[in-house]
Computed example of a mutant assay.
Amino acid sequence: MFFELKDFCIDLAESKDSDEIAEVYNSNKQFLKSHMNRERVTNEWILQELESMKEAGFYPCKIVETMSGKIIGIIDFKAGEEAYLSLLMIKDDLKGKGIGKLIFQSFEKYARSQKSKCIRIDVVTDYDNSVLDFWINNGFVKIEDIKLNWTEKTLPAVIMRKYL
């Protein structure tokens, strides 16, 4: 386990988690359409994504609600002097309840414990303004406009950093 909160724990995702992780992705229909030109992802896609994240040095993790044991989100990150938060996604029906903020705050504590000096995120800018606002409200500043290539699609994005 990487870190835990009162009601959630964050642990490395395994192949046996692919069904529940696909549910998290597939509940976020606007994300899938905007980022991937898809309606759904398959278990096979999830398994490939977990493997490619590991190969790139990331920790693909599941966010588990401790009471139910259900996966309610995912978080992919790299530790290091600059921690790199690649993805934080919560099931769509749980958004707006403060869970994402709690998970991020716990991730920030984890990054500090790993002696990270800052956290980097890349935020797609033509997707949902509330996402950019979320990161700004959590102390991130815009560093640079970039083009992000993911799943054979080029997306306008911004590199953001929060210094710890």
Rank of each mutant, 00 (worst) to 15 (best):
I72C: 00
N138C: 07
K91M: 12
Q48W: 00
L85C: 04
M89K: 13
L164C: 07
Y25T: 15
Y127E: 15
E4K: 09
E108K: 13
I136E: 15
G98M: 02
K101R: 03
K16L: 03
S52C: 04
E20I: 00
L50G: 09
K153V: 12
M1S: 12
D92V: 00
D128T: 11
K97D: 08
I143T: 14
I21Y: 05
E44V: 11
Q114F: 04
S116C: 10
G80H: 01
D7L: 06
K109S: 11
K91Q: 12
A22I: 06
A79S: 12
K95F: 00
L88I: 13
K162V: 04
D76N: 12
T154C: 07
F31M: 14
G80M: 02
E65K: 12
L94Q: 02
D7H: 09
S130M: 10
I99D: 08
E4V: 06
S18M: 03
Y110Q: 03
S106P: 07
D19A: 14
D126H: 11
C9T: 10
S86L: 04
K29P: 04
M36A: 15
V64I: 15
I99E: 09
E14G: 03
D122V: 12
C61Y: 07
D7A: 09
I136K: 10
S106E: 14
K147R: 07
V41T: 15
S68G: 15
Y163G: 03
L102M: 08
S106K: 04
E49S: 09
L85V: 12
I75M: 07
L47Y: 00
A79M: 11
E14S: 02
K95V: 10
N137S: 12
L47W: 00
C61A: 14
R38Q: 15
L47N: 06
K16R: 08
Q114D: 00
A79C: 06
I119H: 07
M53G: 00
K78T: 11
F134M: 10
I119L: 12
F140L: 03
C9V: 14
G57D: 10
L102N: 07
D17A: 04
V64Y: 01
I143M: 14
S15F: 02
S86P: 00
K162D: 01
F3S: 08
V41N: 08
L87W: 01
D145P: 02
A13L: 10
K62P: 05
V41G: 08
N129W: 04
N43E: 11
A157E: 02
K101S: 06
F140D: 02
G100P: 01
W45F: 09
I90F: 05
D133I: 13
I143Y: 08
G57Q: 09
K62L: 05
K54Y: 06
I63M: 07
K147H: 08
S18P: 03
V64L: 05
E65P: 06
I74F: 01
S18E: 05
F104V: 04
E14N: 10
K142C: 12
